[in-house]
Amino acid sequence: MITREDIKHIADLSMLNLSEDEIVKYTENMKEIVSFANTINEVDTKNATESAFALDTYNVFRKDEVKESFNREILLSNAPSTNGEAFSLPGMMN
């Protein structure tokens, strides 16, 4: 059974701050959704391997050939803050 402590832990892992109201709401939602998700246990998968993909493709590779890199100004253009050369963060962050 999912508890509010679970939700708080999961929110931490997901880098989300939840308000008290959100904790209550998501705990309720998750109880319902997870019990719905549990229905998959009714499927017999003894003989089934896991499929990460719908298609059975493998070995998709790229040649080791240099392509021109991107214009830095454009790469930085959506950043909340930069020094013109690099993405920047306030303070020394640890």
Partner: peptide, 30 residues
């Protein structure tokens, strides 16, 4: 979006991966 991030993080998190994500990947095969 937050609800789905929470659900997705939950099913991948330690202790739940096999029961949900791995199982779902098998059901996908079925």
């Amino acid at each position: 979006v937050k609800r789905r991030i929470i659900l997705g993080t939950y099913v991948l998190s330690s202790g739940y991966y096999d029961a949900y994500y791995k199982k779902a990947q098998k059901v996908r095969t079925v």
